[in-house]
Every structure is written in structure tokens, then in C-alpha cells.
């Protein structure tokens, strides 16, 4: 067990270091602004006074190390600074929207992951059958579509033509769960389509990769039925790559959500991010980038640890 503990600890430490470096990167992005950041943000027409005020507001008149320490300290207390665009605390802008976004991602994930795994395993099991080929073409097509295309097609048919679901996800903190599910159905469906195709393709590939290995042939020669070959002998060894695929796609959800939120005018962090980028509201962009990056890094960390723990060579050392 010592080797595996060491590997897991190493991976955790690496994750922590990555987090720290990413936070530095995001913080220092201000420094990358050519010339004076405040001037750049406000444009050439700004008066010297407003520029100085913004400089002070951003803390640009202090040395970078101090500002970084201050910024990081603030974040650990939930203080992400204030928005340049409207002067409100960033935290206040984000909190409710983050909840909405996570709800949407979870909604899509709960449908997509089990469905995609099932379809992926079926395609591997029935490889080269009609089902497999059709699924191959269908998923390849689905992953080639831009999300907004899928989203607008869904709007056109399910909302405009059939009137089944609202084309705009009007969600407020007082919306109850059933209503929330109903109103966010279209965005969730759009996301589901995208990641189901990805997960399914990659699950199938991970399993088929194993089929040429001698121990799979051995299982067949011991009399295992095709179902048993896949479910018992291959799946156990494909666990690590499949978990990786799922996590990768969950991580993708948090970025894919940006487009879908814009299409359905869904009140999440994705739309806030796009608005803030076009307004060049740096503190808000920084905060959202940091939160998304942390989630992303933690998800990847989880996948890596699963693949270490599920490797019998590491789990049962010599």
C-alpha cells in the first residue's frame, strides 16, 4: 500500500501546486495588459483622474506580490473584489448564478452519463452491427454540431413549432424544483446531446482497445459469452479510461454551458462571463475563471486518483 499512498499523495500535491500556479496566472493576467491596465480598460478618452481612481481601485499602485497575497487572502474569505461595470461585490453577482449553472450541469450529467455509458457498452458489444455503425455516424454528426445549432434546432421544434417547452429559461430564486426542471429542460437537453455523443464514442473505443488483448481471447476460450467478456473481463480493465472520459465531459459541461446559457437566456455564470468579457470587467472574469478552473482541476484530480486506485499493479504491489 505504501507505493499507492505515495502516488496518491504525489498527485494531490501536484493538484495543489497546479491550483496555485493557475491562480497566479489568472491574477497576473492583469499585468499582461499592454501599457497601463486602467487606461486600457477605460480607453483613451478617460480623464487622468478616473484612471488614477481605477488604478487605486484595482490596487495597481501597490507592488504585485502584495496585491496577489491580498487577492488570495480575500478569496479565501469569499471576497472576490468588486465589479468594475456596476460596482457590486463580485461574490454577490456570482453566488445565485453559480447555483443555477451547477443545477443545469447536474441535470444534463444525470441524464447523459448513464445513457452514454449504456449505449457505449452496447456499441462495443455489438461492434460492426447495424446499431454500432448507425450510432457511430450519429454520434460523429452530433459532436460536429456547434452547441448553438443544436440549441436553436431544439428551440425551433420543441418550443416554436410544438410549444412544449419555453424557449427562454426564466428562472428566479423563487422558482420551485418542478418548474425549474421544466424551464431548464431545453438547455439541459442541448448539453446532454453533446456530451452523450462524446462519452459514448470514447467508452466504445476504450472497450474495443482491450478486445485484441490475449486475456480477452483467453476469456472467450474459457467459454465466456460475449456479454460476460465485455461486462466482466473488459469493463474492469477499462474502468480508468472510462472514468477519465466521464470526468473530461463533466468538465466540458462547465464550459459548454456558456453557449447554451446565452441561447436560452439562462441566468447562470456562463452568461455573466460572456457579458463581463465584452465589458472587460476583469474582477468578475477573474473570479469566474478561478472558480471554473478549480472545479476542472478537482475533477481531473479525481479521475487520476481513480485510475491509480483501480490499477491492480499499483493496488497490489509485488
Amino acid at each position: 500500500m505504501t507505493q499507492i499512498t505515495r502516488l496518491v499523495l504525489q498527485r494531490l500535491a501536484l493538484g495543489f501546486v497546479t491550483l496555485l500556479i493557475v491562480s497566479v496566472l489568472i491574477f497576473w493576467s492583469v499585468e499582461l495588459l499592454p501599457g497601463d491596465a486602467a487606461q486600457e480598460i477605460l480607453g483613451q478618452s478617460a480623464t487622468p483622474e478616473t484612471v488614477t481612481a481605477l488604478r487605486h481601485h484595482l490596487g495597481l499602485d501597490q507592488p504585485p506580490m502584495t496585491r496577489y497575497a491580498h487577492w488570495l487572502q480575500g478569496i479565501t474569505h469569499g471576497d472576490f473584489g468588486t465589479s468594475i461595470a456596476n460596482g457590486r461585490p463580485v461574490l454577490q453577482l456570482i453566488t445565485g448564478r453559480l447555483g443555477n449553472t451547477l443545477f443545469l450541469a447536474a441535470f444534463a450529467g444525470i441524464i447523459a452519463v448513464p445513457l452514454a455509458l449504456m449505449l457505449g457498452i452496447m456499441a462495443a458489444l455489438l461492434r460492426n452491427s447495424f446499431f454500432d455503425r448507425a450510432a457511430g455516424i450519429f454520434t460523429l454528426t452530433a459532436i460536429s454540431f456547434p452547441e448553438f445549432f443544436v440549441a436553436y434546432i431544439l428551440t425551433l421544434f420543441l418550443s416554436v413549432k410544438l410549444g412544449l417547452f419555453p424557449s427562454i429559461s426564466n428562472i428566479t430564486p423563487s422558482t420551485d424544483l418542478a418548474e425549474r426542471v421544466y424551464r431548464s429542460f431545453l438547455p439541459a437537453l442541448a448539453l446532454t446531446l453533446a456530451i452523450t455523443a462524446h462519452i459514448m464514442r470514447m467508452t466504445r473505443a476504450a472497450l474495443i482497445n482491450l478486445f485484441s488483448l490475449p486475456y480477452i481471447e483467453m476469456a472467450r476460450l474459457k467459454g465466456a459469452s460475449p456479454g460476460r467478456v465485455v461486462m466482466v473481463h473488459a469493463l474492469r480493465n477499462a474502468l480508468a479510461p472510462i472514468v477519465n472520459v466521464v470526468v473530461l465531459n463533466l468538465a466540458y459541461l462547465i464550459t459548454g454551458v456558456v453557449i447554451v446559457e446565452v441561447v436560452f437566456v439562462y441566468p447562470g455564470v456562463g452568461r455573466l462571463l460572456v457579458d463581463s468579457v465584452s465589458k472587460r470587467d476583469l474582477p468578475v472574469v477573474q473570479a469566474i475563471c478561478l472558480i471554473v478552473s478549480i472545479t476542472y482541476i478537482l475533477l481531473n484530480l479525481f479521475a487520476d486518483i481513480v485510475s491509480i486506485v483501480s490499477n491492480p499493479r499499483l493496488m497490489h504491489a509485488k
Binding site: T18, I21, V22, L25, I26, S29, A251, Y252, I254, T255, V258, L273, V274, V277, V285, Q286, I288, C289, V292, S293, Y296, I297, N300
Partner: peptide
């Protein structure tokens, strides 16, 4: 380690 689209938006 940073999601691509996020990085692009930041830049």
C-alpha cells in the same frame, strides 16, 4: 489544467 474556452475568454 485550465479549461480552454475559459482561458481564451480571459485572454
Amino acid at each position: 489544467a485550465v479549461p480552454g474556452l475559459i482561458f481564451i475568454l480571459l485572454l
